[in-house]
Computed example of a mutant assay.
Amino acid sequence: MIFFVYHLQTYSPKNRAWKKVIDYVEKYKYVLIKDELSLDALKHELCDVVNRINAEHPKMKRMQYTAEPIDNGRITRIEAHVISAGCPDTVFILDICKVRSIYQFNEQANVLEKEGGEQ
């Protein structure tokens, strides 16, 4: 099954750590993901990036990473946020959906339609 990153929302960075995460995650906007293994790898890669940047900036509040299905499992949402004063402050939201089908132009189909219409 193929997946597609159809929605990426980033929020104004409040510090250098957030900026690093946002700059990294923006390269995945509108990307096709070949299969479920690649989707799992992407989830782990983003988690590792968030954890690495947290480690590089130990004095700042830690970003928390989540990846979970939403909309009855049709969409996978990956997000990072910081809990500030009891409320989550979102860094980014990345929504990934399953590709239903792929359209490919085929001249043979058009030729057959013309031949079928003339008979």
Rank of each mutant, 00 (worst) to 15 (best):
W18M: 07
W18R: 00
K19R: 11
K19D: 06
K19M: 06
K20Q: 11
V21L: 02
D23I: 00
D23K: 08
Y24N: 07
Y24W: 01
E26V: 01
E26K: 15
K27F: 05
K29F: 08
K29Q: 11
K29N: 15
Y30Q: 12
V31Q: 15
V31I: 06
V31P: 00
L32R: 13
L32V: 08
L32K: 14
L32H: 14
K34V: 03
D35R: 05
E36A: 08
L37D: 13
S38Q: 13
S38N: 12
D40H: 10
A41H: 09
K43F: 04
K43R: 14
K43N: 11
H44F: 09
H44T: 13
H44S: 15
H44Y: 11
E45Q: 13
E45L: 12
E45K: 13
E45V: 04
L46R: 07
D48W: 03
D48L: 06
D48S: 13
D48T: 09
V49E: 09
V49C: 05
V49K: 15
V49W: 02
N51G: 05
N51A: 12
R52W: 01
R52G: 06
R52Q: 14
I53N: 06
N54M: 00
N54S: 02
N54V: 00
N54Y: 01
N54I: 01
A55F: 02
A55C: 03
A55S: 12
A55Y: 05
E56K: 08
H57P: 03
K59D: 06
K59W: 03
K59M: 07
M60I: 08
M60T: 06
K61F: 01
K61Q: 06
K61T: 00
R62G: 00
M63Q: 04
M63D: 01
Q64M: 09
Y65L: 03
Y65A: 04
Y65Q: 04
T66D: 14
T66V: 10
T66E: 15
A67G: 10
A67W: 04
E68T: 09
P69T: 04
P69Q: 05
I70H: 07
D71A: 13
D71L: 10
D71M: 09
G73E: 04
G73H: 01
R74E: 14
R74C: 09
R74L: 12
R74G: 12
T76Y: 10
T76K: 11
I78K: 02
E79G: 04
A80Y: 00
A80L: 00
A80V: 01
H81Q: 05
H81V: 02
H81S: 09
V82M: 00
V82C: 02
I83V: 10
I83M: 10
S84K: 13
S84L: 08
S84F: 06
A85D: 13
A85H: 12
G86A: 03
G86K: 11
C87W: 13
C87S: 14
P88D: 15
P88I: 03
D89A: 07
T90R: 10
F92C: 04
I93T: 14
I93A: 10
I93M: 11
I96E: 09
I96M: 11
C97G: 15
C97M: 11
K98I: 08
R100F: 09
R100K: 15
S101H: 10
S101A: 12
I102R: 13
I102P: 10
Y103Q: 12
Y103G: 12
Y103E: 12
Q104S: 13
Q104K: 14
